[in-house]
């Protein structure tokens, strides 16, 4: 019954690999940029806080699919040449996900008491040392479950990149389906593949949640 899937398995799985790669880039960039966004959002300096807040609010209030389109059309103007859909999609995802991760980090940073930061300062640690050794590691542990959840969402959203012609799994499935006309089997297979990855992810998230509770950092 799943012979249509079987016949096209390498083609489809190569698409799935693209989803994984795109998610990998989106998460690496989004988390790194997100840390800076989170620090910016708790900054007491208005020239840092204001622009970062505008950035976060704008991006969080428009659909991801629009961001993907927008970058796809704007990036060529910015860099002067047409970009591979993967690069364009990766940039959109990083810029978009950084706002979500930024808010997760902000909540994490704000969960740390002012006196704990004062204690670090009082031993002579600088702002950056305090961020690196105290703020970020504690916030990271507290935020790990939400981060994994957001990562799962990011992974699911990578399929949206099909709108700019990226040959990820969903896109490839539509191509296969137009030849094989076996929609139910093909799309079920895609669903199963996404489910497996996301389900494992949510189990990992729960594991870290319990671990954090035991270590008294939650």
């Amino acid at each position: 019954m799943f012979d249509a899937v079987q016949r096209n398995l390498p083609f489809l799985m190569a698409g799935f690999l693209t989803n994984l790669e795109l998610a990998g880039c989106a998460l690496a960039g989004g988390i790194f940029l997100g840390i800076l966004v989170g620090l910016g959002r708790i900054s007491s300096k208005a020239w840092v806080y204001r622009p970062v807040t505008v950035y976060v609010n704008v991006l969080r209030n428009i659909p991801l699919i629009l961001v993907i389109f927008w970058f796809y059309f704007v990036m060529p103007i910015l860099v002067g040449k047409t970009l591979h859909p993967f690069v364009s999609a990766a940039v959109s995802f990083i810029v978009f996900e950084a706002t979500y991760f930024g808010e997760i980090f902000r909540a994490g940073f704000q969960s740390i008491s002012r006196d704990l930061v004062s204690a670090a300062y009082s031993t002579g640690l600088t702002y950056w040392q305090t961020a690196r050794y105290i703020l970020v590691p504690i916030a990271f542990r507290r935020m790990l479950p939400s981060m994994i959840t957001q990562s799962i969402i990011t992974f699911q959203d990578t399929s949206l990149a099909y709108v700019i012609g990226l040959q990820e799994m969903v896109r490839r499935t539509t191509i296969v389906d137009s030849m094989e006309v076996r929609s139910i089997e093909l799309y079920s297979f895609v669903a199963v593949m996404f489910f497996i990855v996301c389900f494992i992810g949510s189990r990992i998230s729960r594991h870290y949640e319990e671990k954090g509770r035991r270590a008294n950092v939650l």
């Binding site: 006196d115 704990l116 004062s118 009082s122 105290i134 504690i138 542990r141 270590a215 008294n216 950092v217």
Partner: peptide, 15 residues
């Protein structure tokens, strides 16, 4: 660095 400080709620680094 010259002035040590101790807080009401200890404020040890939990991790």
């Amino acid at each position: 660095q010259k002035i040590g400080m101790v807080f009401q709620r200890f404020e040890l680094y939990p991790h």
